[in-house]
Structures are given as structure tokens and as C-alpha cells.
Amino acid sequence: MSDVASAPHDAAAGGAAELYGLAAEYAAPEQVVSAAEAAQRAGYRVMDAYTPYPVEGLDAALSQPSSKLGFLVLAAGFAGIILGYGMQWYASVEFYPLNVGGRPLNSWPNFIVITFEVTVLLTALTTAVVMLLRNGLPRPYHSIFNTPGFERVSRDRFFLCIEARDPSFDLAGTRAFLEDTGPLAVVAVER
């Protein structure tokens, strides 16, 4: 990625290459939060911040709706209960009933452990898979990686990228806006 980063990116601003957006680089998490809040007030909507660790207040600043993952996981949990218990019930009552001293075939206390384990397994896998898919992972290529200096996003730098497809995006105006938020640099990002 470093060789891409060293390419003359200001050429992109001239319109030679297709533009993904404008990224501002900050040194502190508070700066990126206040910049995101300012961008929100200025009417920008299609933007994202990139940080080395989760930054408090950033999802509010980006007006991100709260995650609905919990409901999906709950549904997966119910599915797990039905699947886990159903499997044991079917095997013990329908498929191969085994009379052990006249004890009930549907001996539910014995089925609790496996029902629980299947439920946890299914919910955990659902949580992980849904989270990855909603985040668009795995994704080998992302335009944001073209941002010069983006290697430090996983170390100690904070980026705010306003994307070109935002209706209020205007190269000169957005650049001026970002310059006002006190960044270390504002750079154009190729698609």
C-alpha cells in the first residue's frame, strides 16, 4: 500500500482519476468526533470515520442507527432451542423410541444440556457471521486504503472521509470545510 500512497494524489483532485472522497487526518479522537459533528451540521451524510479503536461519541456524530444485531441473535437463539430440542425429541420419541423401564420417551431434563449448547453455538456463529457481513467483510479492496498515510489508521491516527457521492459534496467547498476542522492534512482519495 505504501507505493500507492506515494503516488501524486493531487492529480486526482484535478479530475484525472475517479474520486472516492476527501479524507482529513487527525491526531486525536476528540478532533475527529467534533469534525464529524461539524460535517453533520454542514449537511454531509455519506461519510465515515476511521479509527484505531472504537471512539466514544462517533456513532452519534455520524448519526448511525443503533445496531439491531441483538434481535437477529435472539431469533437465532430461538431457532437453536427448537433445533436442539427438536433433534433430540425426534430421535428419542419418533425415530427410535427406546423403552427403558417404562420411563417417558420425551425425557426433557436429559435434553436440556444439548439444547443449551446448540443454542449458544448457533447464536455465536450468527453474531460473528452477521457482524462480518454487515461490515462488508471479507473485502480485499476498499477505496479508503488509497488514502495517503492510511497505514497509521490502525496505529494512532484518525480519519474522516466525506465521500464524493454525498449530494452536498463539492471538491473545493468540502476541502475548505475540512481544512477548517484542524486536521493534519486533507487528501483526495481515489476510487
Partner: peptide, 17 residues
């Protein structure tokens, strides 16, 4: 790393998960 970008929206979902 599956193409993790550290996006704030990604972090929110990640932390919840």
C-alpha cells in the same frame, strides 16, 4: 484481517457483536 478498515460504523457493529 479480512480488509478491516477501522471504520466507525464498522466499530459500532463490531463492539456490539
Amino acid at each position: 484481517s479480512l480488509g478491516w478498515t477501522g471504520s466507525a460504523r464498522g466499530w459500532t457493529r463490531y463492539m456490539r457483536a
